[in-house]
Design a protein around this nucleic acid. Sequence first.
DNA 1: TCAAATCCCATTGACGCCCAATAATGCCCA
DNA 2: TGGGCATTATTGGGCGTCAATGGGATTTGA
Lengths: 159, 159
Amino acid sequence: MDRFLSTAVMNIDAKGRVSVPGRFRQVIMARGYQELYALRCLDIPALDVGGPDLLDAYEARIASEDPFLQTADDMSFFIHGDGDFLKMDSEGRLQVSDFIRAHTHVADQIAFVGRGKHFQVWEPERLSDYSADVRARLLKLRQAKLVQTGSGAVQGEPE
Amino acid sequence: MDRFLSTAVMNIDAKGRVSVPGRFRQVIMARGYQELYALRCLDIPALDVGGPDLLDAYEARIASEDPFLQTADDMSFFIHGDGDFLKMDSEGRLQVSDFIRAHTHVADQIAFVGRGKHFQVWEPERLSDYSADVRARLLKLRQAKLVQTGSGAVQGEPE
DNA sequence: TCAAATCCCATTGACGCCCAATAATGCCCA
DNA sequence: TGGGCATTATTGGGCGTCAATGGGATTTGA
């Protein structure tokens, strides 16, 4: 069990700190992350948070763009220019910095969303809006390629 | 007998725990599952529950997509953000967490529904509503076929 | 020097782990 | 076939541990 899974909403205290969910901390330790990278997501008000491999993934994405196009340069600027390190205190809490607040608009609660090899942080309301969008898209996708119908409970099962 | 079959409604105790039906536990052990992976179904208020291989299968499915397209991201968001690991205590009970309650709306009872290689958990009332819907759909489908083939004798349906 | 960040300690509550009691089930034997 | 026995399932609850949280004290840095 070394993957970031599930969603948890945590409270931000009066000093602007938030506890990283215990499950997530276990994964962070299991993966040996000494510090966390926080990167702004490109098109959603969330931050991607993870270890050094997350940075690699972003680099790979940039590399897939044509280096002669402005897009690649823009992406690099956007990601590196405004990324940040997050350090946890001795209790496993993060300081909710202006960097985080500016991009996510969090107020007094913050949602941690597991994404497998990394996780995201969201403002809870915006997360549920986005989550509904994702479900709608996946549902449409599934109905589009409906090949076999079971009993009606058509769950897209890769089998 | 290594498949999840039949339906059982179990009580949630004062501490928010529920016993996994013995039959199901036998299947879980026979399959060697140390922990259970639960996923919120897309369009029904139920959870799909299975072994880690269920998650592996989904991840394999994602890996076959172009990682930079939205579909891959949506899929990852769904199976990781709307998924969770469930662990049973030494008596074979599950903690009915907010994660489960929020999507299924269970209160003090929860229904386990065998689905072969995995099972589902439902709020009992919603389950019976849904199963009535399923029956109606199947019946309509069959009657449509009967008319098409002109077999004439429409069989009475025991309700 | 002031404000913010960090460390440290205390409190609260949830959860995991354990043991026990009761109910349900299947099995064996007469 | 029926009753008695043994095993297991289901439940209830005690207790210790740890996560989550709050707040005071200390350090850092502008």
